[in-house]
């Protein structure tokens, strides 16, 4: 299994004591598999994705990525895991504005010291970025920025690809194209995809689908 979540709960402190965001969540995801997580606003989708990305800690349960149990890791360990195993595609793209498309694309792989220029070139071609490599993010359209964000995540060849509303800022046509690309690339890399979306159409294209309601899987 690439990702295994078992009985995970998460709460945040609030004025009234604490707010339970996730409760006893369990799921698993193997290599090459894809899973769509849908649910109402505020149901905890993004929080679950952040927990799976080792960006945040949880109250109870266990999350395992590959052979590593997240509860045993400190911040530095979680950072190392993110460097080498996990890539994230954000809805806001979150490209580095001060770096060119080329540098943005290779950044994560280079941080992990796992750069594969042949694979990068293939990504560039498939994502249609070859003309944009020397531009800066603010010189790109939303769709172009999202393609760069997907390229950056895929350039690492991660075991686990997490995507939080990756097409939320794009129109329907652009969304279709981006998803098509992402699924194509996943076939080549054998990564597991855990995707948060509001869109039934996108969720329908993945292997499995889970619905989150008030912090519980239904």
């Amino acid at each position: 299994m690439v990702l295994k979540i078992r009985d995970v709960s998460k709460s945040y402190p609030s004025r009234s004591g604490k707010t339970q965001v996730l409760q006893d969540i369990s799921l698993s995801l193997g290599a090459g598999e894809s899973l769509a997580l849908t649910g109402d606003s505020g149901s905890g989708k993004s929080t679950l994705l952040h927990l799976a990305a080792a960006l945040e800690g949880f109250d109870s349960g266990e999350i395992t990525i590959g052979d590593t149990q997240l509860s045993t890791l400190g911040e530095a360990g979680r950072a190392r895991l993110r460097q080498s195993q996990v890539s994230i595609v954000f809805q806001q793209f979150n490209l580095i504005p001060s770096l060119t498309v080329e540098s943005n694309l290779s950044l994560h792989a280079r941080i992990a010291d796992r750069r594969d220029t042949g694979w990068e070139q293939r990504l560039v071609n498939q994502l249609g970025l070859s003309e944009l490599l020397h531009r800066f993010p603010d010189q790109l359209s939303g769709g172009q920025q999202q393609r760069v964000a997907i390229g950056r995540a895929m350039a690492l060849r991660p075991a686990l690809l997490l995507a939080d509303e990756p097409t939320g800022n794009l129109d329907e046509t652009a969304s279709e194209a981006v998803m098509e690309l992402m699924l194509d690339l996943l076939k080549d890399s054998r990564a597991a995809l855990f995707l948060v979306t509001h869109s039934d159409a996108i969720a329908g294209r993945l292997d499995r689908r889970l619905y989150l309601r008030k912090g519980r899987v239904s």
Binding site: L55, E75, A76, A79, R80, R82, F90, I96, H108, I111
Partner: peptide, 15 residues
């Protein structure tokens, strides 16, 4: 923060 958060997400610790 929006400029630092992606770098942190890629595995560079806050420290």
């Amino acid at each position: 923060l929006p400029q630092l958060a992606p770098i942190w997400a890629m595995g560079i610790t806050r420290k």
